[in-house]
Computed example of a mutant assay.
Amino acid sequence: MTEHDTATSPASADTTHAPQFTITRIFDAPRELVWRAWTEQADAAAWWHPRDIEIKPGSVDLDTREGGSYRYTMVAPDGSEYPTAGTYRELREPERLVMTWGSPGDDDDRVPVITITLRELDGGRTEMLFHLLGIDAAPGDDDVYDGWSSAFDMLDEHLAATAGGPSEVR
């Protein structure tokens, strides 16, 4: 597997100049399977975390409909907990998912927004464009960008186990 995540600077992404970044991945899995990984509780629990971080058992709750919410808690090796929550703003199965991303209790209008666009490719592959609006990050930050990139490695492994094949990262 080759890795080549792409970061988009705010100025090149759009004219709002809001902090943001984009990661593009190609998975060797059908689009419906990638969609399910984002929207089904058992699938999300398997990968919604960077490597070496775990999901607290029983903490994943998804109400996957427009206006519905989700929550989960990541647990670091030192026992630190990171509760995460958001609201689904748009679900256009199996191609587009828009949701907020913050901590429980955050004002949903003031937290970052994630947009996932899934494009079906030849050979049963899927291109995923992950765009996070509200945080400026780049590869090597050891924080948000690298955390999501690592989570997508976990997604790749989850999809390979589910679909039975390796993926390409770009």
Score class of each variant (00 low, 15 high):
residue 140 G to I: 02
residue 75 V to L: 05
residue 34 V to Y: 03
residue 4 H to T: 14
residue 144 V to F: 07
residue 146 D to I: 08
residue 148 W to C: 11
residue 4 H to R: 12
residue 2 T to Q: 03
residue 164 G to S: 10
residue 20 Q to L: 15
residue 161 A to W: 08
residue 77 P to V: 01
residue 62 L to Q: 08
residue 53 I to N: 08
residue 83 P to G: 03
residue 125 R to E: 01
residue 22 T to Q: 15
residue 93 E to Y: 00
residue 12 S to M: 02
residue 58 G to Y: 10
residue 147 G to I: 08
residue 48 W to F: 15
residue 9 S to T: 13
residue 105 G to A: 04
residue 52 D to Q: 13
residue 136 D to W: 10
residue 54 E to K: 09
residue 102 G to L: 10
residue 93 E to H: 03
residue 102 G to P: 09
residue 69 S to G: 02
residue 37 A to G: 02
residue 9 S to G: 10
residue 22 T to C: 11
residue 141 D to Y: 07
residue 17 H to C: 00
residue 163 A to D: 06
residue 81 E to P: 10
residue 116 I to F: 14
residue 148 W to T: 09
residue 160 A to Q: 03
residue 109 D to Y: 05
residue 108 D to A: 13
residue 104 P to S: 03
residue 73 T to A: 11
residue 67 G to H: 06
residue 98 V to H: 01
residue 121 L to Q: 13
residue 87 T to P: 11
residue 143 D to E: 10
residue 56 K to S: 10
residue 98 V to L: 07
residue 114 I to R: 05
residue 68 G to D: 01
residue 107 D to A: 11
residue 112 P to T: 09
residue 89 R to H: 09
residue 137 A to G: 01
residue 53 I to E: 07
residue 118 L to Q: 02
residue 12 S to L: 11
residue 141 D to N: 01
residue 35 W to T: 00
residue 52 D to I: 07
residue 124 G to E: 03
residue 7 A to W: 13
residue 47 W to L: 13
residue 50 P to K: 10
residue 144 V to G: 01
residue 50 P to T: 07
residue 150 S to Y: 15
residue 116 I to A: 09
residue 20 Q to G: 14
residue 99 M to L: 11
residue 113 V to Q: 10
residue 104 P to Y: 06
residue 52 D to F: 12
residue 106 D to H: 09
residue 159 L to A: 03
residue 42 A to G: 10
residue 87 T to C: 13
residue 97 L to C: 04
residue 151 A to N: 12
residue 114 I to M: 06
residue 163 A to L: 06
residue 34 V to R: 02
residue 56 K to Q: 14
residue 9 S to W: 01
residue 163 A to S: 08
residue 14 D to H: 10
residue 152 F to H: 07
residue 119 R to A: 15
residue 143 D to T: 00
residue 28 D to M: 06
residue 168 E to P: 12
residue 30 P to M: 04
residue 130 F to Y: 14
residue 4 H to C: 07
residue 95 E to R: 00
residue 117 T to D: 08
residue 122 D to W: 00
residue 42 A to Q: 15
residue 17 H to D: 03
residue 26 I to D: 01
residue 9 S to D: 09
residue 167 S to C: 00
residue 50 P to M: 08
residue 87 T to R: 15
residue 87 T to V: 15
residue 65 R to M: 03
residue 169 V to G: 09
residue 65 R to I: 05
residue 31 R to I: 06
residue 24 T to C: 02
residue 78 D to G: 05
residue 34 V to P: 04
residue 9 S to Q: 09
residue 55 I to A: 14
residue 50 P to V: 04
residue 154 M to Y: 04
residue 37 A to S: 07
residue 101 W to Q: 06
residue 134 G to A: 05
residue 160 A to N: 01
residue 122 D to T: 00
residue 15 T to G: 14
residue 152 F to D: 04
residue 108 D to Y: 00
residue 53 I to K: 08
